[in-house]
Amino acid sequence: MEKFTSLNALVAPLDRANVDTDQVIPKQFLKSIKRTGFGPNLFDEWRYMDEGKPGEDCTHRPLNPDFILNNERYQGVEILLARQNFGCGSSREHAPWALLDYGFRCVIAPSYADIFFNNCFKNGILPVILNEKVVNQLFEETFATEGYTLDVDLASQTVKTLSGESFSFDVDEFRKHCLLNGLDDIGLTLDDADLIRSYEAKRKEKSPWLFDVIK
C-alpha cells in the first residue's frame, strides 16, 4: 500500500448527499478480477452520456458536461469534497480502487458509511471527517475559487485552507500508523499469530462443533 503522509492538492466538490458505491463504480465493472483500471469508470453513469461497458476504451465516449469531474478546472484533482453518508450501499472495495485509480488520495466529508470508510484506509486513501459547518464552508470556497487547493497533513491531523485557516480531524492511532508508513495490516496481525493460536485453542475446547466440520 502506498503511504499517505501529506498532500497539497486540487479539490473537486461533489455536491450531493448519500452517494452510494453503485454510483461510485457501477456494478458492470465489478466483473474485473484486478484491483486496478477502474479509474476511467469512476462515477460512470454521471460522467458519461452513454452506458458504459466493461473493458471498453472510454476516451471517445460522450461526456456529461454538467458533471463536476468533467469540468476543465478540476483536472488533476486529488481531493474529493463530499456530503454526508458518502459511500453508502454495497461493500465493494472497487469504490476506493476506482477513486484511487482516478487519482484521489483523500476524501473530505461530514460522514461516511462504515464499510467504505474502512476500505479507504486499506488502500492508502485518507477519509477525513470534518463537521457539517466546515464542510459547507469548504464547498463555498471551492466553488468560488478556481484552482482551490487544500493542505492535508496526516501526522498533525489537520486540513489547512488557502487562507491559512486550519481544521483538525480525528483518526485511529493504528490506522494512522499504517497509513503513514504504508504498512500492510496482514503482516502486522501475523505478528500476533501466537495470540490467535491460543485464542483458537480455547475456542475449540469450548465450542468444538465450530471446527473440522466444513471440509
Binding site: I115, N119, K122, N123, T189, A193, I196, E200
Partner: peptide, 18 residues
C-alpha cells in the same frame, strides 16, 4: 457483517479482523 476485499484477504490469512 460485510467487509471489503482487503478484509477478505485479511481474514483468509489470519482468521481475524481489525
Amino acid at each position: 457483517h460485510g467487509i471489503g476485499t482487503s478484509e477478505v484477504e485479511h481474514v483468509l490469512a489470519t482468521q481475524c479482523l481489525i
